[in-house]
Amino acid sequence: MSMATLSKGEKEKKPSDVLLDLYSDLLTEIWEVVSALIGESILELLFILAVRKIAEKYRFLTLLKVSDEGISLEGAREDCGKMAPAEVHRGFQNLITHLFDLFSALAGGVISRELFPKVFPRVKEAERVISQK
């Protein structure tokens, strides 16, 4: 996907699907980087805690499936399709911010230093998707 514009195929997708694909990639990347540092079991626990906390406000996040293999967004696709893309974006943004808060609380800057260069551009990309739609 281009950083600035959407490809033809993606333009045909529903905005919520584009967002879900983007956040699915992003959360997978977070999973890969952080699981290498702290292991899958504890990371699964942190994801569960973060999803539980943010889902209090963004209910669609309860449809995410967290396991020791990662996080799947597929269960949320249908519900997200009926929601405003900006709301979906805000839910995921809050989830990622909360995960970063947990990582920072546990390891100071150690995890964030590894993660930030990879995550920041993708969140910006999500914001561009929202503004283009």
């Binding site: 540092l37 702290i38 079991s41 504890i42 626990l45 569960i48 609380a105 546990l106 390891a107 100071g108 800057g109 150690v110 230093r113 590894e114």
Partner: peptide
């Protein structure tokens, strides 16, 4: 560096390494 002591989704404590110098720990 702080690490939860957890098994099967139950957290029963945490362990931590602490330092008086900034950026004392790496990946």
């Amino acid at each position: 560096l702080t690490f939860p002591l957890a098994l099967e989704e139950e957290i029963f404590g945490c362990v931590s390494l602490n330092n008086d110098q900034p950026n004392a720990f790496d990946a």
